[in-house]
Design a protein around this nucleic acid. Sequence first.
DNA 1: CGGCATCCCCCGGGATACTG
DNA 2: CAGTATCCCGGGGGATGCCG
Lengths: 117, 117
Amino acid sequence: MKGDVHDRTCPSRTLLDRIGDTWSMLVVIALADGSLRYSELAARVDGVSPKMLTQTLRALERDGLLTRTVHPVVPPRVDYALTDLGSSLLDLMRGLEDWAETHIGEVVEARNAYDAR
Amino acid sequence: MKGDVHDRTCPSRTLLDRIGDTWSMLVVIALADGSLRYSELAARVDGVSPKMLTQTLRALERDGLLTRTVHPVVPPRVDYALTDLGSSLLDLMRGLEDWAETHIGEVVEARNAYDAR
DNA sequence: CGGCATCCCCCGGGATACTG
DNA sequence: CAGTATCCCGGGGGATGCCG
């Protein structure tokens, strides 16, 4: 079964929102090299608030893109790791990251030119 | 010069927001095969309101991803076309579209499983 | 440590109506 | 045709405080 993002009623539309989300991208990329704890993610994803981090992690977990593992120890320890499905997004996410970092110069120039008109 | 999306102060962060935006993606993909008029875009990008379409087009134009050409005729005619920079995003956008459409089934299953817990 | 709850403000974005 | 203008509501998202 194939979705159609051009159909406004297709669920794949909501998926486009999720994978296009900045926090989602940064979290997925952060987990590229293996599982991380909540606090490690908070440190790596610069600027994210606890609320948004939790919200993003829950959404990604619900969509089956990552797993959440609670270790019953004191102090608590919770690990997050990409699923196979989540890993299949890595190349795409890194592609977007790379495009943004590579072309940001041109875009800033274009913005300046546009604003100066 | 290279940006760093992991730095919250880097302008490439705003760029990540823009290219991750659902309307931006759909507009860029719609323009893949050549220029389109405003009304043609409105028809192809299912569900977009005039306000969001205009807003999205202005943002993409400002970032140098597409050009806006006004023909001084009656009735008015305005064409939108990707720049080279915009075209360089096409593979990435189509990759995201394809991923979403291919994996939407698995994701819907994952959501149902999660919600049933 | 890893959250969830609450408050609150701002603005994204839809609907509708009007114009060059 | 290709927008702009206005209204208005819902929710995104930050700050703060509490808990197991």
